[in-house]
Design a protein around this nucleic acid. Structure first.
Lengths: 163, 163
DNA sequence: TATTGTTATACTCTATAACTATA
DNA sequence: TATAGTTATAGAGTATAACAATA
């Protein structure tokens, strides 16, 4: 017998999940954001799991491809990742042969990050899978509302009182 | 000397953060959702940290207040939390004297969850702080766009291909 | 057999302090 | 002094398997 709480009398009702009022939660931005993210993440898995590539890893590869030469600090700052936590993330991308840390001549403390040939080839694959994912997500609300959602999300983040 | 990577020559440029192209990322729903959530969470801290109450805990208290008698499984399912992980979360709310596990008569496997008097009193406090938080968040986009954002987020989650 | 609550466990993500090499 | 990358560590969050009690 693991359950050993006080045995007060239960009330008359015990609502089934369909009757539960979660309306209040849906009016809370934090809850709605998390809900959307959870449901997005399921689709992410369906399209990206076979690449064994987590969202943060994909973001790094994208950023490095579009901005070769960036430092680890710059990238981790853009992505909202502590630079300490960014090290092992990058280690994995490097050990898989996709990213290269080139020692910079101007500032010998930092590395300039670049995609390898292999990394560029992999990104072509990854982009195909990711396009399928985005198409699937866009289908939910349609082109126009999806664009609105994106605009509002980024506007919301840009307007943060504390940057 | 900790840094011991291959010393290929660095390229001529090393863009400063202001010049970096993150436009591509902003068009990705997953990235934009995370960005919004990160910026939201900072405000959450400013208003809710003094209550020492994490978002999930507040959600549980809200749900229980609005739907007294719910079981642990039902609540954890609504919130997208594994029922195994819900145990310790609820243990803390119970040990702080805010929630009660009442043994149910109809199904003696489950507990009916209720707020205590103390829990109800605490929620009055918490709601004040949370209202201030929501007001601050709403200020970012204004009433109308915030409502649009909420609607789109929930619609997006509701439309999930895999429920 | 199936479900509820529980324990144990492992893995990811996140946050912080302290260290080195360099600026 | 300050910054870039690193290490170590601790705390959350999350996922899974297995168990006792009960359905």
């Amino acid at each position: 017998m693991l359950k050993k709480r006080i045995g007060k009398a239960a009330p008359a009702r015990s609502p089934s999940p369909e009757v539960v009022d979660i309306g209040g939660l849906k009016r809370i931005l934090g809850f709605s954001l998390r809900r959307a993210q959870l449901s997005m993440y399921k689709d992410y898995g369906r399209f990206m799991d076979r690449l064994d590539l987590r969202p943060a890893q994909y973001s790094v590869l994208l950023l490095v491809r579009e901005n070769p030469g960036l430092s680890q600090s710059t990238i981790s700052q853009i992505l909202g990742i502590q630079r300490a936590n960014f090290v092992s993330l990058l280690d994995e991308l490097e050990s898989r042969g996709w990213v290269e840390r080139r020692s910079s001549e101007k500032d010998r403390r930092s590395f300039a990050l670049h995609l390898t040939k292999k990394g560029q080839a992999f990104m072509k694959q990854a982009n195909v899978a990711h396009s399928e994912l985005e198409a699937s997500l866009t289908q939910r609300l349609g082109e126009q509302d999806t664009r609105s959602l994106l605009r509002l999300l980024n506007q919301f983040a840009d307007e943060a009182s504390v940057e």
